[in-house]
Design a protein around this nucleic acid. Structure first.
Lengths: 338, 338
DNA sequence: CTAGTTTACGGAATCGATTGCATGATAAAT
DNA sequence: ATTTATCATGCAATCGATTCCGTAAACTAG
C-alpha cells in the first residue's frame, strides 16, 4: 500500500523505472539534472531499495554469515565486532549463528546457506567437527569461506589463527620456570585445531626441559560446566594432582577455579595456572589469572578485510590456501607467580 | 551455471514450474504420485529454494534483526541465544547489529531495516537514545518491534524487562542492612530505562530507612572504561568516599573493582558492593561479587515466542502495548558481607 | 449418455530492481 | 541541408518462486 518503490518514483517523476534506477546508481547515461531530480525525490520520500529484489537480480546478497561455536565468550564477541566494523561500512549485513559446539547443528546451519543466502561465510568450527563434507559442499558451491581460530586444515582457503604452538610452549615454559614439575593440560576436544597446536607446544616445552610426561596428564573435558567442575575437583583431590595447569580454553580455567574453591588448595602456592582466555577481567579474579589472550578484534578485522577485497573487487582469485598468524600475548599475573 | 532451481527441476520432470512449486509446498491440488516424484528429485539434487526470490514474492524475509548496544556482554549474548533457539526452529534467521551505545549508529542500523529486510526487530536501545523518531518510523512502517531490557516507553509495543525497581530497592536494602550509611549509585546514562528504574528503587530504599542522600551520590559514568576507572579512583581517594556502591550495570562494577585494586581499600570491610550483572564468574572475583542477575536466556525465549506467534499465525493483532516483567535474582556473595 | 463437477496440472503475471537493446532528439560534421 | 555521432531515455526481459486463472481429462449424477 504505502510502497515506495522504483515504479512509484518513476510515476511521480514522469519517467520510466529504468531511468530512475540508473539515476540512483549514478549511471553515466543519465544527465545531471535528471539525477538531481530523482535523488531529491528519493531522499524526500526516504526511498530504500528492496534488498531482496536486488539480490535476486544481482545474485549478491550483501550478507555474510558468521558461525561460532559459542556465543557467551568474549573472544567470539570481539571477533564479530571486528568483522562488523569493516563490513558494515561497505553495506554488508551479518547473519550470526551459534553451532553450540555441535557438528549436527553446524551441518544444519550450513545447509541454510547453500542457496545464495550469503555471499560468504566466516567461521570457527565446532569442537566436534571431524567430518567435513558439509564444509566441502560450500567449496563446491563456490561460496567463499574463511576460518578463524578453530580451523579446518583440509579445506583449501585462508585461515586466521594465532601462534598457538608458540604460546602453548611459552605458557608451559613459564610454568616450568615457576617450579612446576607436573603440569597438566586441559582441552575440550582433540578435534579442534587450536587444542592440538597448543598441546604440541606444551609437549615440546616439557621435552625441552626434560620433564616427565604421561598421557593422562592431558585431560579431555566435556561441554558441561558441571561435569568439568566435577572432573577437576576429583583430579585435585587425587594423589596424582598436578602442581601446574595449562588450560587450552577459557571455560576450562573457569571450571578449575570453581573446583579449586571447593578444595583448600591455594593458587599459586600449591598449584599454578595459566589459561588461554580473552576475559577482560582475568585481572580481577581471585587470584588474578595469567592468560594468553588472542587479538580477537584484529582477527575479525583481518577476516573481514580479506573478504571484502574478495567480494567487492572484480575478478578476484579464490582465497589463497594459507594460514595467517596473528600473535597472542601472555599476561603474567598472580596465578602463576613463582 | 550449476543452478538448481524450480525451472530446472520442472524440465527434468517434464512438468511446469508451477506444478513443481505446488508439489514442494504440499498443495492440495497436486496428486500424491507427482508430489513423491518431485520431492524425490529435489532431494536427490539437494534443491534449496532461493530465499530472495521467495522473499520478494511473499514480502516475508524470514529474518529478524537483533540490535544490542554492546556485544561483549554476557547478558546480551544470552538473550540472543534464547532468541535463536526459538526462531531457528521455525526457519528464521538472525541479523545481529551492535549499536555501540550510539544513537547515530542505531539510527543508521534502523535505516537499513526499513525496506523489508527483516520481518521484525528485537532490540535494546542504546544508552544515548533520547530522540525516538527512528523508532517511530518502524512503527509507521508496520515492522513489529519488541524491546527488552533497555526499553523505550513511548513506543506502543511489548517490552520485556526485569523487576528493576524492586531489585534496585532490594540491593540497596541489603547494603543498608550490612551497615552502609553512604551508598553511591553508578549509572551509565539517565536516558536508559533500566538505570532510571533501578535508581528509583535505590532512592526509595534510602528514604524508607531514613538514610541521607545527596544528588551527587548518583555517579554518571561514561562509555570509556579508562575514564570510568579514573573517575572511580578519584572518588575512592576523596574525603567523600562511599561505604557502599550499587552499580546499575556490570561494566561499572568492573571499573570499580579495577579502581579499588589501586587503592588499599578492602571489600567488604571498607566498602561494600552490589552490581547488576550476568557475569557467570562473579563468584570467582576477588572478592566474589554480589550480583543481581537477570534471566537473560529466558528473556530471549519470551521475546522470540511472542514474535513467532505474531509472525507465523494469520490475522494476529499488533503487539500489545505492555511491559512484561521477568524477575531477577540477587546472589549474595562476599563483596557485600556485613 | 449428457451435463455438471472435481482433479490435476499448465500458462502467465507478479514481486522490485537492473540492464541489454532500441529509439528519438539534439549537436556536430560534411 | 543531410548525414553521422552522441546523449538521454524508454521498453521489455530477467532473476526464481509463487499464485491467479484457465482448461483438458476423469469422474459423478441424473
Amino acid at each position: 500500500m504505502n510502497e515506495i518503490n522504483i515504479k512509484y518514483l518513476a510515476e511521480r517523476l514522469k519517467m520510466s523505472p529504468s531511468t530512475v534506477s540508473r539515476a540512483l546508481n549514478d549511471s553515466y547515461e543519465i544527465s545531471e539534472p535528471t539525477k538531481i531530480k530523482v535523488k531529491a525525490l528519493a531522499k524526500e520520500l526516504n526511498y530504500q531499495p528492496n534488498p531482496y529484489a536486488r539480490s535476486l537480480r544481482n545474485h549478491k546478497s550483501k550478507t555474510i554469515a558468521v558461525i561460532i561455536p559459542e556465543r557467551i565468550n568474549n573472544f567470539f564477541s570481539q571477533v564479530i565486532d571486528g568483522i562488523e566494523d569493516i563490513t558494515q561500512e561497505l553495506g554488508y549485513h551479518l547473519l550470526v549463528y551459534n553451532s553450540h559446539e555441535d557438528v549436527e547443528k553446524e551441518r544444519k546451519i550450513i545447509s541454510f546457506l547453500l542457496n545464495g543466502r550469503v555471499d560468504a561465510i566466516v567461521m570457527s568450527v565446532s569442537s566436534q567437527t571431524s567430518t567435513i563434507d558439509h564444509l566441502e559442499m560450500l567449496h563446491q558451491k563456490d561460496i567463499p569461506l574463511i576460518f578463524f581460530d578453530r580451523i579446518c586444515q583440509e579445506i583449501p582457503t585462508t585461515k586466521f589463527i594465532t601462534n598457538d604452538y608458540e604460546t602453548g610452549y611459552q605458557a608451559a615454559v613459564h610454568l616450568i620456570e615457576g617450579g612446576c614439575k607436573k603440569i597438566f593440560f586441559l582441552l575440550l576436544s582433540k578435534e579442534i585445531s587450536i587444542g592440538r597446536e597448543r598441546l604440541k607446544g606444551y609437549r615440546q616445552a616439557l621435552m625441552d626441559h626434560n620433564l616427565p610426561f604421561a598421557e593422562d596428564w592431558v585431560i579431555q573435558c566435556s561441554q558441561s560446566e558441571e561435569a568439568n567442575i566435577q572432573q577437576m575437583t576429583a583430579l585435585l583431590y587425587s594423589m596424582e594432582r598436578p602442581d601446574g595447569i595449562l588450560a587450552s580454553v577459557e571455560k576450562l580455567a573457569i571450571a578449575t577455579y570453581h573446583a579449586i574453591r571447593k578444595t583448600k588448595l591455594r593458587i599459586p602456592q600449591d598449584l599454578k595456572m595459566v589459561s588461554f582466555s580473552n576475559m577482560r577481567i582475568a585481572e580481577l579474579l581471585n587470584p588474578p589469572l595469567t592468560t594468553i589472550s588472542q587479538p580477537a578484534y584484529e582477527i575479525g578485522l583481518e577476516c573481514a578485510k580479506l573478504l571484502m577485497k574478495k567480494l567487492t573487487r572484480k575478478n578476484q582469485p579464490d582465497l589463497e590456501n594459507k594460514v595467517i598468524v596473528l600473535p597472542s600475548k601472555i599476561h603474567i599475573r598472580e596465578s602463576s607467580k613463582g
